[in-house]
Design a protein around this nucleic acid. Structure first.
Lengths: 159, 159
DNA sequence: TATTGATCATTGCAGATGCAACGAGTCGAT
DNA sequence: ATCGACTCGTTGCATCTGCAATGATCAATA
């Protein structure tokens, strides 16, 4: 049971490494698709996609939910606003918050990108084959386990 | 059959996103372990780990094998050399190449880090439970599929 | 041999990133 | 109403990263 004492460490079998390589490759593969289509960077894509899903939310929401640094979200949102894809308004009751939402143009963009993403998703599922279900389960476990230790006391709607 | 036409795109179910988040969390979790122990950055850890596995190799070998940009490998190797963990020698027959290898000190460091990594690996496997096997299979498929002939690669979230 | 084209490691540079402030705003207790 | 502790979004700054040269070296060919 104690395999820790092996003399030579094998990077190829180390899960964090393999996970990272796989994530990088898949991300780059997908990035080639939407970059040529939209000119968006990865943080911009993520913010846009989250807005399409969540409606009107704040920077903090995205930061907590999407695992991106606040400044990253803020800068991505600023660029998206310049591009006319996202609207920044004052929150109704709490003026510290920024209410981010998609513009018409942003929604149209996400319609196109959503189709591309959907097609890529089915492509990936086909590559995964029967492992797909267990794979998603594993991703859930790992993401959940990594959630401890940060400074967050989330209380908002968990989901 | 045709689920692509859904009106609202759901980021939560998009595999590249979930994969990236999981990889980032796991990497950061592991990074906390070896950073406090060794003071190494992630690229440095990867180079060191690969050297422990591969013996004496060139920058190009690591670049191709570990999915890191050449310059990233080069700079990491330079820092490791300054720290006395890695030795850079001329290649015997081809003087373009650099022969990277671990020093005594580097090997000792890897012995400690290898133990930490092994413990973390078993921790992850425990969290994964029965999905572990299918998960590794899925990682293999995804890494292989992303390997489309290109030369230069690098990834976002590191381990 | 001289020359051309390829490969290898390094470096310059522009842009991205993470982290720590900072100002603005909110809430509760006094 | 005021004070103090807290939260939110932005920005400064040091560092990191990716990409495109650059210089050095090799292999092949004339």
């Amino acid at each position: 049971m104690c395999r820790l004492a092996e003399m030579t460490f094998e990077l190829d079998r180390f899960l964090p490494y393999r996970l990272s390589v796989a994530a990088g490759r898949v991300s780059r593969r997908f990035a080639r698709l939407y970059e040529t289509e939209s000119g968006l960077t990865n943080p911009e894509w993520r913010v846009l996609a989250h807005l399409a899903q969540a409606g009107t939310v704040s920077v903090r929401d995205i930061h907590a939910r999407v695992d991106m640094d606040k400044s990253k979200v803020s800068r991505a949102a600023a660029r998206l606003e310049d591009a006319g894809l996202v609207r920044k308004q004052d929150h109704e009751t709490d003026r510290r918050l920024v209410a981010l939402s998609l513009t018409e143009e942003g929604a149209a963009m996400m319609a196109r990108l959503g189709a591309i993403a959907g097609a890529f998703q089915t492509e990936l599922l086909a590559e995964l084959g029967p492992s797909a279900k267990a794979f998603e389960d594993a991703l859930n476990r790992l993401s959940a386990a990594g959630n401890t230790g940060d400074d967050d006391h989330d209380d908002d709607d968990a989901a």
